[in-house]
């Protein structure tokens, strides 16, 4: 069930959840957002997470990325158990080992594209690796736009800056929550292409939440969530196979 690539670290685990549960509220307002989820994200792999609205996709991602606490179970980035970390250590972990691409509010409007890209490294007080940076910027095709501010860039370009930022610090894993949710299909395709390239060519690990079967088809593997549980998995997806699986759940969901 593994999708091996030519990359040497391909078999290592970049992140892993074991019996991960997340419960919001209690009593009548109790919501089980994640119900004992166990999942593994391999290094050098592009994983898409899909599922109906409210199924817990974002919650899973937030818990894995150290943005939210878990109710029980374990979430690990590499060998680091997240629940054992304090806020300061979590912040440092996010800064050094994780890259983020959100649906919106990715960039600081006061900084130029270049400054936005190097922001995590600036925060850490690290020097950016110039060669790597150039390569990332080239890959996302932003060389001409580095001195522009976000307000001078289109939505698609802004997302590309966000992807470049996530890649620039060479994190162990990149989490992207509906990165193409606000974009038209062409800009969306560009972003997805970059994410896939970064996996194929740069050996990056990417986990992406999406609602779009076409977007999911860029991934190596698709994990399906429903009601806070992993219900299915698909390797080497195409838009059609993904759509077909989704239909199956919908039917199941309605009959059960």
């Amino acid at each position: 069930m593994t999708t091996t690539t030519a990359h040497p670290t391909a078999t290592a685990t970049a992140a892993r959840a074991v019996d991960l549960s997340k419960v919001y509220g209690d009593g009548e307002t109790r919501v089980v957002a994640l119900d004992a989820v166990s999942v593994e994200f391999r290094a050098g792999e592009f994983t898409a997470i899909m599922g109906p609205s409210g199924s817990g996709k974002s919650t899973l991602m937030h818990c894995m990325a150290g943005l939210d606490t878990v109710s029980s179970g374990s979430a690990r980035i590499g060998d680091t158990e997240l629940s054992a970390l304090k806020d300061k250590q979590l912040t440092k972990l996010r800064r050094d080992k994780i890259g983020f691409v959100f649906q919106a509010f990715n960039l600081l409007p006061t900084l130029t594209a270049a400054e936005n890209i190097t922001l995590p490294m600036d925060i850490a007080g690290r020097k950016a690796d110039k060669q790597w940076l150039d390569r990332v910027v080239d890959t996302v095709g932003l060389s001409e736009r580095l001195s522009h501010r976000p307000s001078q860039l289109s939505g698609g370009q802004q997302q590309r800056v966000a992807v470049a930022r996530a890649l620039a610090s060479r994190p162990e894993i990149i989490f992207a929550d509906e990165p193409t949710g606000n974009l038209d299909s062409r800009s969306g395709a560009e972003i997805l292409g970059f994410l896939r390239n970064s996996v194929k060519e740069l050996g990056q690990t990417v986990v992406m939440v999406t609602h779009d079967p076409v977007a999911a088809s860029y991934a190596d593997r698709v994990v399906f969530l429903a009601d806070g549980r992993i219900v299915d998995e698909l390797h080497g997806p195409t838009a059609d196979t993904v759509l077909e699986r989704m239909k199956r759940f919908d039917a199941k969901g309605r009959t059960s």
């Binding site: 990325a65 943005l67 806020d87 300061k88 912040t91 440092k92 996010r94 800064r95 050094d96 890259g99 983020f100 959100f102 919106a104 509010f105 990715n106 960039l107 600081l108 409007p109 922001l119 995590p120 925060i123 850490a124 930022r165």
Partner: peptide, 16 residues
Amino acid sequence: KHEIGMLRAIGLDRAA
């Protein structure tokens, strides 16, 4: 608040 949230997510700690 979105910006601050984003900064926190990508690694700016509370003190900063």
